[in-house]
């Protein structure tokens, strides 16, 4: 499995964010996208996720699962949590597991892996920012997707949370997954760096 882009050009609101961007990542590999604010890290992840259309160039996944498109094989962990405060922790996670489909995993184990098993029945409204982020991470575990697109994944996580997430990312890579993360902070795993938008 290999995710690659060549000559990707991104225009937002009539302004060119970046152009001529080439990148590639293979199974078991992590790519850390770095660059100053506004250099287009989030835009690049949204381009890969199919939420934005590139103005030029192409992005593709080779050797993925049969007929599925790249976005259908990817998890996106964005700035926003995609959680409903009115639903309980388990209900939130169960919804995404069923809606996303594919190979599904036990919810209790997923919650335990991110250290939220004690809060399973509580409304998501009661969670702190760090706990909300942990619940979002549990979504990546509940439904299987080979490609993880992470936007500042360690934001709001404390030191133990970052270590926990680094271990989860390591497991994902070891199972042949692929990670592309936009980040300012070190991820805690071995990752190749892709710098966009010139020097910081």
């Amino acid at each position: 499995m290999r995710l690659s882009g060549s000559g990707v050009r991104c225009v937002r609101g009539g302004r060119e964010v970046f152009s001529g961007l080439d990148f590639a990542a293979s199974a078991g590999e992590a790519l850390a996208v770095t660059g100053r604010n506004g250099s287009g890290k989030t835009s690049l992840l949204r381009l890969i996720a199919g939420l934005l259309t590139p103005e030029g160039g192409s992005i593709g996944l080779e050797g993925g699962e049969g007929e599925l498109t790249l976005p259908e094989q990817a998890h996106l962990l964005g700035h926003r949590d995609a959680l409903k405060p009115a639903l309980s922790v388990t209900e939130n996670l169960a919804f995404w597991r069923e809606f996303l489909g594919g190979e599904a995993f036990d919810l209790r184990e997923c919650l335990a892996a991110v250290g939220l098993d004690h809060a399973a029945g509580l409304p998501a409204a009661f969670l702190s920012a760090g706990q909300r982020r942990r619940l979002s991470i549990a979504r990546l575990l509940a439904a299987r997707r080979p490609v993880w697109l992470l936007d500042e994944p360690t934001n709001a996580l404390d030191t133990s949370g970052q270590a926990m997430f680094a271990a989860l990312m390591g497991d994902h890579l070891a199972r042949g997954g692929l990670i592309i993360a936009a980040t300012h902070a070190p991820l805690g795993i071995a990752a190749r760096e892709l710098r966009i938008g010139g020097a910081a």
Partner: peptide, 14 residues
């Protein structure tokens, strides 16, 4: 859209 769910819904296999 505001809480980011819409992105995941658009990306999904449905």
């Amino acid at each position: 859209h505001e809480d980011g769910s819409l992105d995941l819904i658009v990306m999904s296999r449905t």
